[in-house]
């Protein structure tokens, strides 16, 4: 119990009559890569949004490192050490790649209410920004405008932003969705390399990637976790096969 970084206790969320999160209790262990899988519309994104604070659960509790964060705002959760990449690319479109990272660096430095000194040519912020990009190996794209990036490159930038605050827990919502096969291989490698520094909750549809990366897998169907265990346990679980793997492949 003490080694769990994230704990969900009976989290419930309804959209009208639709139960999007059905009494979910879940433990994510420190340092693991935990995959969350499930068919389209199962409620994976909805669950992650509640962990990050974009959505409030109807009931239940969310604990980060033992601390109840159920009513904490998104920005405060980010400061407490949660990072998120979104299913649909969510970066600063009008900015350059480095400028995106610099904004994250400003936040990380906590010195935000500064009104005079220019930010974009502050050497400390540039170094900090480049370090953020280097983490996922995209510092060579620093000067390009986000609006000119290919989709896969944008996904990489978003990953670097999710990691920028040096989070203890990273929520990745289909980080490779829409990226080409090369970018997918590259990103799988990058994510595998993060394992030593942080904990990852990964939503992914590509089963090859999931079985390559995950140490534990939870399966969500119609808002409820129907199974949680090692990749081996999950692939041999008859319930999962029926509900998900069987029908999908």
């Amino acid at each position: 119990m003490t080694s769990s970084i994230l704990e969900l206790r009976s989290v419930k969320k309804k959209f009208g009559a639709l139960t999007a999160t059905d009494n979910v209790s879940l433990n994510i262990q420190k340092g693991e890569i935990h995959a969350l899988i499930g068919p389209n519309g199962a409620g994976k994104t909805t669950l992650i949004s509640q962990i990050f604070g974009n959505l409030a659960p109807d009931s239940g509790e969310i604990l980060l490192d033992g601390k109840n964060i159920t009513n904490t705002s998104v920005s405060n959760r980010a400061l407490l050490g949660i990072g998120r990449s979104f299913q649909i690319s969510n970066v600063l479109m009008d900015f350059s790649v480095l400028e995106n990272a610099i904004v994250a660096k400003i936040s990380h430095s906590r010195k935000t209410f500064r009104f005079f000194k220019p930010a974009f040519n502050d050497p400390d912020l540039i170094d900090g920004g480049l370090a953020i990009l280097k983490r996922v190996g995209i510092e060579h794209m620093a000067d390009r405008n986000v609006s000119d990036l290919a989709h896969g490159e944008r996904r990489l930038l978003e990953l670097s932003l999710a990691l920028a605050m040096q989070p203890v827990l990273v929520l990745l919502d289909e980080p490779m969705a829409g990226a080409g096969p090369e970018d997918t291989v590259f990103m799988t490698k990058v994510i595998a390399g993060l394992k030593s520094d942080t904990t990852i909750l990964l939503i992914e549809h590509d089963m090859d990637v999931v079985f390559q990366l995950a140490e534990r897998i939870s399966v969500l169907v119609e808002g409820a976790v129907i199974a949680s265990g090692t990749p081996n346990e999950i692939s041999n679980n008859t319930l999962v096969r029926e509900a998900y793997l069987g029908s999908d492949e």
Binding site: N54, R84, V103, S107
Partner: peptide
Amino acid sequence: VILQAIKSNESRVEAMGL
């Protein structure tokens, strides 16, 4: 810069802890 970032994408700025 933060103000202009909010104009560009408020939810990303929030996710950055601002």
